[in-house]
Design a protein around this nucleic acid. Structure first.
Length: 65
DNA sequence: GCGATCTT
DNA sequence: AAGATCGC
């Protein structure tokens, strides 16, 4: 059973176009190689272009979708 | 290169 | 199927 916590909190992100925006991620997951720490990755949509992009989110940001 | 995930 | 994400 999979519980999806909705993504609500905004994140300060750098868009591919180089703009600093506060966006709510579409989804956040953990990306961890075995035995290592890894990072949290967020999937975002650039409101200007409509294109999706991924970027690191802070460790304290909750997993969500 | 590894890791998950989704868009392209 | 590849690319892109970050840090180790």
């Amino acid at each position: 059973m999979v519980i999806h916590m909705p993504c609500t909190e905004k994140v300060k992100v750098k868009t591919p176009g180089g703009r600093e925006l506060e966006l709510v991620p579409v989804k956040v997951w953990q990306l961890n190689p075995r035995g290592r720490k890894g990072v949290k990755i967020g999937l975002f949509q650039d409101p200007g272009t409509g294109r999706y992009f991924r970027t690191r989110v802070p460790e304290e940001y909750p997993l969500c979708s």
